[in-house]
Each structure stands twice: as structure tokens, then as C-alpha cells.
Design a binder for these strands. Structure first.
Length: 266
DNA sequence: ATGACCTATTCCATAGGA
């Protein structure tokens, strides 16, 4: 069984690339982030023709997550346990954002998550990011009572180690590399999870994101921020994991590459 | 070269991304 995660940066703009990739990588389950469309506007028919059922959670212009599966989709859950919203400047209410969806696919429980960016250290969005990560941890604790294979995959917007960014000096004082954010990942692992570390298809560090600007991809100036965590029932079945950087090549791509994880059949 | 992009929308300007 092959599961994957990919921040597609708009499923509408990325549809041709997504369909191509589904056809060649042939994943059984795909967690998507930043679909940037309302639930009703997801291209269900197009991915359906390739055999995928879809559970989507999206409201439009920003965020949005989905799970695609050709091995069934049951027990769909939208949002985290006590998920915080973001109080935008000038807004009176915290808006709940579509950043997490779960489904059970072929006996494996998967969460597709798009962790808030944080914008700047000390910004309200940064505090929101940390609160959101704590809600993710609490959700994991709640769901990990049993021993069914369980994984959370997605764009965490955190580089776990200094080596996971192309130049740590360039990130001095910025989000994605702070001790607080990394502590949140450690706390998440404390729920009973281990990271599935992927192979790089080229170079040493398996980066998953390269900014569109400044020729970051050709220069391999990337970040490893799309991550996979699983419980022992899942990680014990991992036979391979890699970042498909080929999906980042050429025009009309996402700025993220997919992370692919292969599991032995149970 | 301290340069360099891309998305959807209240659509040709802006917010957000990381």
C-alpha cells in the first residue's frame, strides 16, 4: 500500500499535474493540502476516473485539505479536537479554518494537515500556529488509544532540524525553525508517533519545498517541512519512503514535492 | 546580481505564502 502527502498549492491550478502524478506514482492514498477550493468545487469526477474517492474540507481561496483513496474512505472527520481559529486583524470572531481532515483508508487511519504558517515570530498567527499544533497533539492522543495503523501527513511548516533548511543562517529569527515550533513536534511525537524519514532522490537532505522565486529549486535551496508521523503499527510496515522531487520540475508545478511512503500489506 | 514567483478573489491590486 502506497500513501503520500502533497501540498498542491491549488487543486484547480494543479489538476493536470495531479492527474499525471496519480497515474505514474499510483498511490493508494493521498493527503492533499492547500486545495484552495470550496468542498463542492473539488474535481471529484476527474480524480474519480482514476479510481479515487475523495473526502475534502475546504472553503475557497485559502487553505483546504483532502484525502484521496482508491482503497475506501470511511470515518471522515473534519477539524481537530478543540481546534483553535485564527482571529484576523479587524475581525470580531476567530475563524475556523479548513486545515485538517481524517479518513480511514484500507485499514489505515490518515490525517491530512496544513499547519498554520505563523508568518512572523510573535505574530498572532505564530501563537495560533502553536495552539493549533497543541490541538493536533490532543487529537492524536485521543485517536491513538488503539493499535490500528495511524499516520498524520502534511505540510507542518516546521523544519525539524537545522539541516532541514538550505541555509540556517538565512532563517535566523524567522518562523519554521524556532525551538518552540520544534518542541511542538516533539510533543506530538510524545503521543506515540515516530517520524517516517524519506529518501532524497537527489542531494543529501530530502527537501520538500522550494520557493518559486530566486531559482530556489535549480539551486536546491529548499526546506524539509512536509512530514509524516506514524504509530508503531504503521511504521513497522514501512518498506520505503521518498520525496518525489521530479514533481517539482518544470512549469506549472506546486512549490512543494510529494512525500511517498510504501507500506507492506498487513 | 542584495535581482528572479504564484495563487484566487470583493479581479489588473491585494493578501498570503515560508
Amino acid at each position: 500500500m502506497r500513501i503520500a502527502t502533497w501540498n498542491v498549492n491549488s487543486v484547480g491550478a494543479r489538476l493536470p499535474k495531479l492527474l499525471d502524478w496519480l497515474g505514474t506514482a499510483e498511490p493508494d492514498v493521498v493527503c492533499l493540502q492547500e486545495i484552495k477550493c470550496a468542498e463542492d468545487d473539488f474535481p471529484y469526477d476527474e480524480v474519480g476516473e482514476l479510481g479515487y474517492e475523495v473526502a475534502a474540507h475546504g472553503t475557497g481561496r485559502w487553505n483546504g485539505v483532502a484525502v484521496l483513496s482508491r482503497v475506501g474512505v470511511t470515518e471522515v472527520r473534519r477539524g481537530l479536537l478543540d481546534q483553535p481559529g485564527f482571529l484576523a486583524e479587524g475581525s470580531l470572531f476567530e475563524a475556523p479554518e479548513p486545515r485538517a481532515i481524517a479518513a480511514t483508508c484500507g485499514g489505515v487511519r490518515v490525517w491530512s494537515v496544513y499547519v498554520p504558517n505563523g508568518r512572523e515570530v510573535g505574530h498572532a498567527h505564530y501563537e495560533y500556529k502553536l495552539r493549533w499544533l497543541d490541538a493536533l497533539r490532543a487529537t492524536a492522543v485521543e485517536e491513538l488509544a488503539g493499535d490500528r495503523p495511524w499516520a498524520v501527513l502534511g505540510d507542518f511548516n516546521i523544519a525539524p532540524e537545522d539541516r532541514d533548511v538550505w541555509d540556517i543562517a538565512a532563517f535566523d529569527g524567522s518562523t519554521h525553525v524556532t525551538a518552540e515550533e520544534r518542541k511542538a513536534l516533539t510533543a506530538l511525537k510524545g503521543a506515540g508517533l515516530t517520524e517516517v524519514y524519506p529518501r532524497a532522490l537527489k542531494y543529501d537532505v530530502p527537501f520538500t519545498y522550494w520557493d518559486y522565486r530566486a531559482l530556489r529549486f535549480p539551486h536546491n535551496q529548499g526546506m524539509r517541512i512536509d512530514l509524516v508521523y506514524g504509530n508503531a503499527s504503521l511504521t513497522g510496515r514501512v518498506t520505503d519512503a521518498y520525496v518525489d522531487r521530479n514533481a517539482r520540475k518544470g512549469k506549472g508545478t506546486s512549490d512543494h514535492a510529494p512525500v511517498v511512503v510504501d507500506l507492506a500489506s498487513s
